[in-house]
Computed example of a mutant assay.
Amino acid sequence: MELAAEKFKRDNVTVAAARVLPRGRLALVGLGPGSAEERTPRAEAEIRRAAFVVGTPEAIDAVGPLLRSGTEVRYEGACDLASRGAAVALVAFGAGPTLDDPVEADVIVVPGVRDRCV
């Protein structure tokens, strides 16, 4: 929270207005080794939901058709963006991305490819 206006004090009364800062969201989306047809609906939804999509150029190219108009593409800075209140999808091939640094945001781990085990 942060103070939205200066406190007002008078007699036995203090009035203050605060606003709740938005909490960021960081979705760690694994693109797996499979094809786009095997991607999970939840992985695709997290990518579409994000205001920022972060990943390697190859990973960004793989999810390009899912990006909404206005979605910003970045190649680094996912944790910082989410900590500042943004909705971010961090995409990577293989099992998925991992975090090396703490982040002040809601972190969601999303497997990106359906399980092929029978």
Rank of each mutant, 00 (worst) to 15 (best):
P111W: 08
R19K: 14
A27Y: 04
R116G: 07
P97W: 08
T71E: 08
A16S: 13
A92M: 03
F52Y: 15
L90S: 03
D80H: 07
R25S: 10
V91E: 02
G112C: 05
R19Q: 07
R84I: 00
A4S: 15
P57W: 03
D101L: 11
D100H: 11
L81A: 12
R68K: 15
E72G: 04
V54N: 05
V29E: 03
A50Q: 04
A51F: 00
G112Q: 07
L66T: 05
V13S: 00
A50C: 07
A62N: 03
A4M: 06
I108S: 03
P97T: 05
V53W: 09
A51E: 15
A92H: 06
K7W: 06
A36T: 08
A27G: 06
R74T: 10
V91N: 05
P22W: 09
A18Y: 12
A17H: 07
L21Y: 06
A36I: 05
A86L: 01
V107G: 01
A45F: 03
R114Q: 09
L31Q: 12
R114E: 13
I108R: 09
V103A: 02
E38C: 08
T14N: 02
A78D: 02
A59C: 10
T98P: 00
N12W: 01
R25G: 03
E38L: 14
S35H: 12
D80F: 00
K7V: 11
V63M: 11
E72S: 10
F93T: 02
G85D: 09
I108N: 00
K7S: 09
Y75I: 11
R42D: 05
G34P: 08
E58D: 15
L81E: 07
D115H: 10
R23V: 15
E72L: 14
R23S: 12
E76P: 00
A92E: 09
R39T: 04
A45M: 06
E104T: 05
C79R: 06
V109P: 00
R116A: 13
S83I: 01
I47A: 04
R84G: 14
R49C: 01
A5K: 09
V113G: 02
R84E: 15
R68A: 14
A4R: 10
L66V: 03
D61E: 15
A16I: 03
F52H: 15
A59K: 04
R25A: 05
F93Q: 02
A95K: 13
R49M: 01
R84D: 12
L66E: 13
R19Y: 02
A36D: 14
V63G: 12
G85H: 03
D11P: 00
P111A: 13
P33E: 15
P97V: 01
A95P: 04
A82C: 02
